[in-house]
Amino acid sequence: MQPTSKQRLWMYETMVKSRYNEARLSATYMEGKSPLFNMANGPLPGEMHLSDGQEPCAVGLGAHLTKDDYFACHHRSHAQALAKGVDLKRMTAEILGRKAGLSEGRAGHIHIFDYEVLFWSSGIIGQNMGPAVGAALARKMRGEAGIAIACIGEGGANQGGFHEAMNLAAVWKLPFICVIEDNQWAVSVPKAKSTAIASNADRAAAYGMPGERVASNDPDDIFAAVGRAVARARAGEGPSLLELQTVRLQGHFMGDPEVYRPKAEIAAKPEMDPIPHYRRKLIAAGVMTEIEAESIVARAHAEVDEAFAFARSAAEPVPEDAFDKVFV
C-alpha cells in the first residue's frame, strides 16, 4: 500500500510541524533554567521528553487513523499527538500549565488527553497497553467502527503488562494494533542489553498474530506496514504487532547529557535525521518542488507559532482549581 501524493505531503508537513513544535518547546523549557539548570524553574517546569527523530512513526500511523480510533501513547508523545489531530493550541497550553490547556493545567506534557480525537499518553511505562485492548473490546462489543492502537517504546515492550495485553487482544481477536517505536535506547540502556531477541516482531508468533518490523524510519515504508495492520483490524481479522526502528535525536529528557551514548552515534545524528531524507525523496519523486517545500515549512511554523502565542497569553489556573475534577 503506497501513500498518495496528498498523503505524502501531509506526512512531510506534520513531521516539520512536530519538529518545530519541539524546538519551540525546548526553547521555552530552557527559559529560567540557566545558568543554573533546575527542572522546577521557568515557564515550563517538570520533565520534558522530545520526539525528534521519531516523526516518521507518528505520521505513518496517523495517516491511517480517524478520530474514532482510540490511541493510547507513551511518554514521548508529542509527534504522535500532532499526527492524531490533537488540538495543538490546547496541547501547547497544557504543556505550559495553562487553564486553557487540554486538562486545564492539571496534567502537563507527559499526560496529553484529547477526548475529541481519542488520544492520551501516559507516564508509567506499559500502562497504556491494557486500556487500548479494552478500547478495542468496547468497539467490538458495541459493534462500532474504530480500532485501537497502543504505542510503546522497545524498552517498554519488556514490561509484563505488554505480554498480558498482547495475548488478550489475540485470544479475543480484537481490532487492536501494537506499535513498538524502537529508538534503540531506554534512557541509558541499549536494546541489546534489555531484550533477548533482535526483533520484537518475532514475538508476534507467541501471540498468534502477524508481526512486522520496519527498519528504515521512512514514512512511506511505515505507512505501508501500518496500512496492512489497519486493514486487518478494520476487517475484524484481529490484532497485529509492528516494530518500527527509529531514532532518538535528543537525550532521554531535556537535561540528559547522554554520557552513556557512543560518541560516533551522537556524531551521526544529523545523518540519521529522517526529515531531510524525506524532503529530498519527495522532491526527487516530483511530489513537491523546493519552493513548495518551503511554503509547507512556513505554514507549519506559522501554525505552531500561533499555538504558542495562544498558550503564552492564556491564564494560569488559580490555586483552588486543583480541587476540581477529582470526581466527575
Binding site: G97, R98, G105, E316, V318, P319, E320, D321, A322, V326
Partner: peptide, 15 residues
C-alpha cells in the same frame, strides 16, 4: 489534600 498532584505550579504549590 486528597487530590492527585496537579502539574501547573499555582495548583501544586498551593497544595
Amino acid at each position: 489534600p486528597d487530590i492527585p498532584v496537579p502539574f501547573a505550579r499555582p495548583m501544586e504549590q498551593h497544595c
